[in-house]
Structures are given as C-alpha cells and as structure tokens.
Nucleic acid binder design. Structure first.
Lengths: 347, 347
DNA sequence: CTGAAAGCGCTTACAG
DNA sequence: CTGAAAGCGCTTACAG
C-alpha cells in the first residue's frame, strides 16, 4: 500500500541507501542530478517515509506521550492545546492518553512507553498521589509534569497557587470586604491547599478571620459548587459579602446559586473565580478572576521537555505568573462607602 | 535503556522467538513451565515490548490518527474525548494533531501517515472545503470524518443539523414567538447552512418570516456573537422577542449583551442555544438549548473506524439524534398570554 | 514443544 | 559521489 524507499530507489536508478541519504537532506551524499531525480521520483510515487522503521534504528520515535486526567476539563485541555502546538511546531507527534477512571494511570503510561515516546508530559493532577506511576517510569526518561508525581524524577511546571489565593484575598480586602468565604476543590489536592493557604494567609495578615465553616469543599464542577454555596448560605446568620471560588466553573455555580436566591452580584455579594476561561468573561455578571496561563504553561512544558530530550539544561521547577482580572462580579461590600478601586475590563 | 526480547529470552534460557510467542499469549508455543519462566523474567526485568518493531512487521501501529481543528473549541474537544476513550479501551493509541492555522491540513495528515496510523478520524469542520486533504490520503486508508472532506472516501458521522434548527424553531413557535432572529456561524459552513435551513423552514411552515436582516452572521465565539447581537438590536424598530444562536458560546454572548442592555431574559427576549455544553446549564439564566451528543458521536466514530480497520461492514453515513433541553432562557413573548408549555429542568 | 530463518523499512558507519 | 553490509527489535511461517 505504501511506496517504500526501495521502490523509489529502483525507479530513480540508485541504491536505496543513497535514496535514503538524499531524502534525509544529505547533500554530500549524491550529485545534484541524482538528488533531483530521487526527490522527483519520491514525489511522483507519493513516498511517505515510515516513521516506525526510522524510529527503530534511530531509537527515537519523534513522538511525545501526553497523559491527561480528563479531556472534558476545560483547564487541562488548554495545557494540552499549548503543548501540542509547540510540539508539532518542532516536528514531534503527540500520543495522547487520558487516565481512564478506575484503571491505573501506570497502565496508560506503559502503553506510551511501548510506543517508545521520546518523553512524557503529564497533565494529570488527579494522579499526584499515585505511587504506581513512578514504578513504570524508566530512569532517564525525559519527563515534565504539570502536577507532582511521587518518586518520579520530573520537571515540575505550573503557576504559583499561593500567589493566586493571595491576589484573590487582597482584591477583596481592598474593596473593603471582611466577611469572606471560599469554595474550594477537593482538600486532598495540592493546588487546593496552596490556594487556600495563600488566601487565608493574606486575609489573616489584614486581621480578617477565615473560620473553618466558611471554607466549603466542593468538586471542581459548577454543579458541586452550586450545592456547596447553597450549604454556605443556608447557615443561619452568615453575613458573607464575598466568595472566592477556586476555579471559574465553580464560580459560575456560585453565581447561579446567588441568582436563584435573588442575591445581587456584586451589590450584595462579590464573587472571584480562578482560571480565566474564555467563557468567564461572558458570564452575567462578567467574572472577576485570577488568570492562570494555561496555554503558555503548556507551551513552556513542551519547550522544557524538548530541551531535556536534546540534553540541554532545563530547570527542575518553574512557576509561571498569575494575574488578577477585574470584571463586574466584584465590588465594595453593601455597608461600605469605599469606591471601587480597580478599573473594569470592557467586553 | 529498554530491556529487549533477547534479554528476556537469554535470562529465561529460551530462544527469543519462543519468548516472543509466550509474551504474545501463544499457549501452544511453549510448555507451561517455560511460559511461566519467560513471563516471570519479563516482569522481573521490566520488559516493555517495542511497538515500533512490532508495528513494522505486523504492518499495523495500533495507533489512530486524530486530526482536530482546534483543541480550544469546547465542542470539538468533546468529540475527541469520546473517541480517545473508546479507542484506548480497544488498545489503540491516539496520535493527536491540531490543524495549525496558516499551515495546510494536508501536512498534518501526512505526518500521521508517516507514523503509519491504522486509520484516521477527522474532527475538523474548518477543512470541509480543503481540496488538498484528499490528495495525501491513501486509497484504502480507513477514514471517518465528523465533517465533510471533498474527494475523500470517508465515513461521515454527525448530528442532524436541519433537525437541530427545526427543534429550536418549533420550541419558540410553541411558546408563541413570531418575531424571531438568529445569530449564525460563518455562512460558508455546512453546519451553519443546514441549521439555518431547518430553522427557517420550520418558521416558514408556521407562517413566520425570517427576513435576511434578522439573520446575523458571527464567529463561533461569545465575543463575536455579542457584537452581532448588538448590531441586531441596534436596528431601529426591531420588535424581536426571541433569538436562536447556533452554539452555546454564541448564546452566552447574546445573553450577556441582553443583560448589558437591561433586557430581561426570558420576559422580554428568549434565547435558545445549541450544543448543550456542561457550562450552559449554569448560565444566568440557565440556557435552553439543543443538545448535540458530542461524546457519544466521538465514541461511535471510534467504533466505526475500528470496524473499518477490521474489515467489518460499516455505514457510509450516520446521524445521531439531537434533542431540545428546555431551561430558563426561554418563555412566552411579552405580549403573549400563552402558558409555558415545557417543564423546566432543575439545576 | 522449541528453534533458526527470513524479513518488516529504514539509517548509519564503512568501503571504494 | 555511490553502494553494500549490518542492524534496530520484533513476528511469522517453517522445520524438527
């Protein structure tokens, strides 16, 4: 079905080794006339080199394995998007595997190794405590993670989660809020703890308490955050004026609950999200959030992985900056006379 | 770096061919004792078969190429998610390539062919008019498209776009709307034309006109739909009571514009979207939309592709059903006394 | 039940 | 400038 190197060589009247060299751009390997002939015949015959055969002898598949938690997660898929684009630009193919719920991530990783990927990029915070992963990894395998992996020798890339929490807290403090709650992701997760830590620390520094009952745990989805926020509001006598949700989807769940309860945002309650997904700008009201550079992080992860593969120096760890994006979902608390400090972004 | 079959065989005291057979589950190839020994040694040594070498001789890479327009597109990525899961469940790896804007899709496809993918799944409506794609395709290459490809011998899977438009129109008609507009995607696109056709035909059947100035073109994004809807409302004397947006993101842009203009939804204007992304349920107000079965379509595409590869009979074309999901963004028009007909979904 | 041969489609020294 | 040898790590008939 496919034309082989030997087919091309035979038609061009050269040995297949010479054809190989010409097709690989080795100009010293043949006369200009021979080279031209080989190239022309290859084009005529529709020659498509066999990367499997090439990979076997070169011991490089020019393929990168990407292990992702869940493609339905809007944030994770943006990492993958950035990485894929950067990798493709350098001629590397991407072998994509999602972690199948209920099946060990190590199995998915092993599949990647069978295909002899040149390196692996892990975008799967869900396996940050999975001890099985390190066991299938080969020592020396170039590995970049956007999450921790116990026991694995990986470069760790990401954003500064503590800073994320701090930015959210300081924004609310500057607006004059003192009665603040937060809807957080699963508390076992590293990112959840760090964001909460940064948030709580900044509040504490301003003398604002964040009692445990104002920290409500939720899944990462809008639906779970909706329920968590409902539980929060249902506590009698909670005069909360601001809520920080640990991602934008959760924030949209909070926004929706507030709307359902007839609570005006931001007049009565302010809401801050985290991620800055494209959709967040078009929520009603437009969501104030902490922007996480997903695509850039994915691109950077690809670049670091390629450096690792090329044997170039690479950092062991790198944090990309986050930033506050002020929109319409935050304002001064009801009782306050403080003016809104930050300029609003226009749609 | 990797342990080879020969390493395993040497340690187990058998020929590497016998080791190969045992490791491939050929029970007739060796005694139980020999098999046990080979398997044990392979596990001890951490043997990981080389899929490149295997693929070379078997002429199958057990790899499927997936060509996608844009991973940032929430709808397309759901197709990919469904397909990836179904493919992985059958032991197939996924080689993922996004179409790089400005670069020919044929180049991306060629890369996939170099890796000798067993089949290709195309999730790229953006290339539905690209003549270059068919030229790189090999005859006989199992190919499934979620969009058309001129000149390519592909199975076409998708949803019924005319029906989608019809469902939106009939829902609005039943609510009593007569002054209806629609925000559509790029009009060159097949899906845009079909949805518009179904929408317009259903309206016409009810004696409701859809004049050209009530059809506003937009990109697929919320931002472009926001601008398009603004242009629509800015037309003097348009007594519009309902808008159908051709995807949920556009609908969220319309919702946001309406909120910015102080127009109440659905009391003054009803909005219907299309796709039913998870986020749409949490918009304010929750979006009425036509649900498109993205994940299921991706799964089905994978199944059909695998059938094609296995030489089993497969359909040439298949449409998956869409359905109306009624939420809070639609209601009777302002002047109407009609009751709301459809029950609302609870969050 | 086990092994040796041949070959998948290439690349890379090595000769000439 | 060109070619022939060797080998990448496997699988698959074919013998015994």
């Amino acid at each position: 079905m496919y034309v082989s190197l030997k087919d091309v060589a035979a038609r061009a009247g050269v040995s297949f080794q010479t054809a190989s060299k010409v097709l690989n751009g080795n100009t010293a390997a043949a006369s200009a006339a021979t080279a031209e002939r080989v190239l022309r015949v290859a084009a005529e015959l529709g020659y498509v080199p066999n990367a499997l055969a090439r990979g076997l002898v070169r011991r490089s598949s020019v393929t990168i394995g990407v292990l992702v938690d869940d493609l339905a997660d809007a944030a994770l898929v943006r990492f993958v998007d950035g990485a894929q684009a950067a990798l493709a630009a350098q001629g590397h193919a991407v072998l994509l595997t999602a972690v199948t719920p209920g099946e060990p991530a190590a199995d998915a990783l092993r599949k990647l190794l069978e295909h002899r990927v040149d390196g692996v990029l892990v975008v799967a915070p869900g396996i940050e405590r999975d001890e099985g992963v390190a066991r299938v990894l080969r020592p020396g395998l170039p590995l970049v993670g956007l999450n921790r992996m116990p026991g694995a020798d990986a470069v760790l890339l990401g954003s500064d989660h503590r800073e994320t929490g701090r930015l959210a807290a300081e924004h609310l403090l500057e607006l004059g809020h003192r009665e603040i709650a937060t809807v957080v992701g699963p508390r076992g997760r590293h990112v959840v703890r760090r964001r909460l830590e940064g948030f709580g620390t900044a509040l504490a520094a301003a003398g604002v308490a964040l009692p445990e009952h104002r920290i409500v745990e939720s899944g990462w989805s809008a639906a779970t955050a909706y329920a968590a926020a409902a539980a929060l509001l249902d506590r009698a006598g909670e005069p909360i004026t601001a809520v920080f949700a640990q991602n934008d989807e959760m924030a949209s769940g909070v926004l929706r609950l507030l709307a359902d309860r007839g609570v005006r945002v931001p007049e009565e309650v302010s809401v801050v999200g985290c991620d800055d997904l494209p959709a967040s700008r078009f929520l009603v009201p437009a969501l104030t959030t902490i922007a996480v550079p997903f695509t850039e992080t994915g691109e950077r992860a690809a670049a670091v992985l390629l450096d690792l593969i090329a044997g170039k120096p690479a950092p062991r760890r790198e944090l990309l900056p986050v930033r506050l994006v002020v929109r319409a979902s935050t304002g001064p608390p009801p009782a306050s006379d403080l003016p809104t400090i930050d300029p609003r972004e226009q749609p």
